[in-house]
Design a protein around this nucleic acid. Structure first.
Length: 224
DNA sequence: GGCCAGGACACCA
DNA sequence: TGGTGTCATGGC
């Protein structure tokens, strides 16, 4: 299993641009920019996030201090293209208020901020703080359940520990793996994940065992 | 015009 | 604990 997971990773790495994957447009305060991007990207296309981020950058609202001191209504207007703008602007404000001036930012702190759940917190930890935490998202669940390695209704925590148990805790590995999953699902996985053109078709458990994806549910612990 | 996107949360049973 | 409704914009 270990080898299999690493082989999937190296295939993704070969097929897609996964290095320095999380975009930074301004760069004055990458931690803040990445964190705000993680909040804005909740259930939203990255194109919309990019617009909102560039609006914030154009008004110099891309540092913790400037966001902390900004009027919430201004933030609302700027992040509108990313959708859910009232909730997201509130979360961004609370994030800046709570994180500004702190040296130790951990998962517990991030999860205590209204509007930041596990996926967003882990994205911040992995990409903004370079902590070895595997980010689970809808794509990861979709891809690995279709490959047959996990049940499609697996919980966030179970899928995360699946990766933590089977991979070495390495920041670059986790960053690039998640990037590869996202890029793969955005391009191919959406419709026919295991079609003839799919670079991951050789890793499909169903194909090897000739089991229909809908006829068998694999439990997280089974077979690993 | 409908569907979906790199979720989170409140509410209810 | 799990299911459902809500939040909202923009691209295809």
């Amino acid at each position: 299993m270990l080898n299999q997971l690493y082989k999937v990773y190296s295939t993704l790495k070969k097929e897609y641009c996964v290095e320095d994957w999380w975009p930074v447009y301004d760069g004055r305060e990458p931690f803040t920019e990445i964190s705000v991007g993680a909040i804005l990207t909740q259930n939203t296309n990255w194109n919309n996030v990019e617009k909102a981020l560039k609006h914030l950058i154009s008004k110099d609202l891309i540092t913790l201090e400037s966001i902390k001191n900004a009027d919430k209504k201004i933030i609302e207007e700027l992040v509108k293209p990313a959708g859910f703008y009232k909730r997201k602007s509130e979360t961004i404000k609370e994030f800046a208020d709570r994180v500004y001036g702190r040296k130790n930012i951990d998962r517990e702190l991030l999860l205590s901020i209204k509007g930041i759940g596990k996926e967003t917190a882990d994205s911040i930890l992995l990409y903004a703080l370079n902590k070895p935490v595997f980010v689970i998202d809808a794509y990861a669940k979709r891809l690995f359940s279709r490959l047959g390695y996990i049940s499609e209704d697996i919980s966030y925590d179970n899928l995360q520990s699946f990766f933590h148990k089977n991979l070495e805790k390495d920041v670059t590995l986790f960053q690039e793996y998640h990037a590869g999953i996202v890029e793969h699902c955005k391009s191919i996985c959406k419709k026919k994940p295991l079609c003839e053109n799919c670079p991951l078709k050789d890793f499909c458990k169903y194909k090897k065992q000739e089991i229909s994806p809908t006829s068998q549910i694999h439990k997280q612990q089974e077979g690993f």
